[in-house]
């Protein structure tokens, strides 16, 4: 921190950060509050304390079905995005320079709004296969998750000693052995972080899932969206709170294992 910052500015900065924190976190806190309120209307601040709405949510076949669909989907997306994104990152890291055309292409799903790609995928899928299916969602979520895996893995590979692979060659390591003993261990933290992001993106994704939904294909965010459009109630707050807690858990694991700040500013 640069010293000699005027005192009033330090105070202003503190107040500013506090307000920003309230602004950023208030919606989450409010949802959590509603989920334990005894009132059967959505209200904040909460009145009383109850776990009734959680029992309600866990007893609802609609929510449970949506949860299992989302979980299955997120796990499969994590696997496919990590494999394809990890391999692509290794390939990209061997290129002469970063920021080349191939890298831009791989990262383009980050830049292009998913609604544009969602509507195209729906139309293409309908033309080729008819009704949308689990595989359509799997494909869609994998496409948007791959860039995150690539970015975290490339960030880790950029920090490594560029001579490691050459050193391994001079020590007699053949192609496959270099991949197994040198490259993959180097990628590990980036791949892990990318996998966490991939899971989280798929589990929370709403836009693609809304476009590709059908009555048998309702993910948890879509189920919540439908309820919010219809009429918000404390049960949907309980489900939302569970989603927040899953995100918090993922973040804690990520921070413990690898450190958040490292991947936040890349």
């Amino acid at each position: 921190m640069v010293r000699a910052v005027p005192g009033w500015l330090r105070i202003a900065a503190f107040v500013f950060v506090l307000l920003a924190a309230i602004f950023m976190l208030a919606p989450l806190v409010v949802v959590m509050g509603v989920s334990v309120s005894e009132s059967q209307f959505v209200a904040f601040p909460p009145q009383g304390f109850t776990f009734r709405w959680y029992e309600n949510a866990l007893g609802s076949p609609a929510y449970l079905g949506a949860f299992w669909l989302s979980l299955n989907l997120a796990v499969l997306v994590t696997v496919s995005a990590s494999l394809l994104g990890g391999a692509a990152a290794i390939g990209l890291s061997r290129g002469r320079r970063s920021g080349g055309a191939v890298e831009t292409f791989f990262l383009s799903p980050l830049v292009l709004p998913s609604i544009i790609f969602a509507i195209g995928l729906l139309m293409l899928w309908s033309a080729v296969f008819g009704a949308t299916s689990f595989y359509a969602l799997w494909l869609a979520h994998t496409v948007v998750a791959i860039p995150y895996v690539i970015r975290t893995t490339l960030a880790v590979l950029a920090e490594r000693d560029p001579f490691l692979e050459e050193a391994a060659r001079t020590m007699g390591a053949t192609r496959l052995k270099r991949l197994w003993f040198v490259t993959l261990p180097q990628c590990r933290p980036g791949l892990l972080a990318g996998a966490f992001f991939a899971f989280n993106i798929s589990f929370d994704e709403a836009v693609l899932s809304l476009f590709l939904r059908n009555p048998n294909l309702t993910t948890l965010p879509v189920q919540i969206y439908g309820q919010l459009e219809f009429s918000p109630d404390p049960t949907v707050a309980a489900v939302s709170t569970l989603m927040i807690l899953i995100t918090v858990a993922l973040m804690l694991i990520l921070e413990r294992m690898l450190g958040l700040t490292r991947f936040a500013s890349g």
Binding site: E205, P232, S240, T247, V248
Partner: peptide, 17 residues
């Protein structure tokens, strides 16, 4: 934390507020 929370959930919070 808000970034990684589903946009649906965050919007719900604003609906309440």
């Amino acid at each position: 934390l808000p970034l990684m929370t589903s946009v649906v959930v965050r919007t719900f919070g604003w609906m309440v507020l």
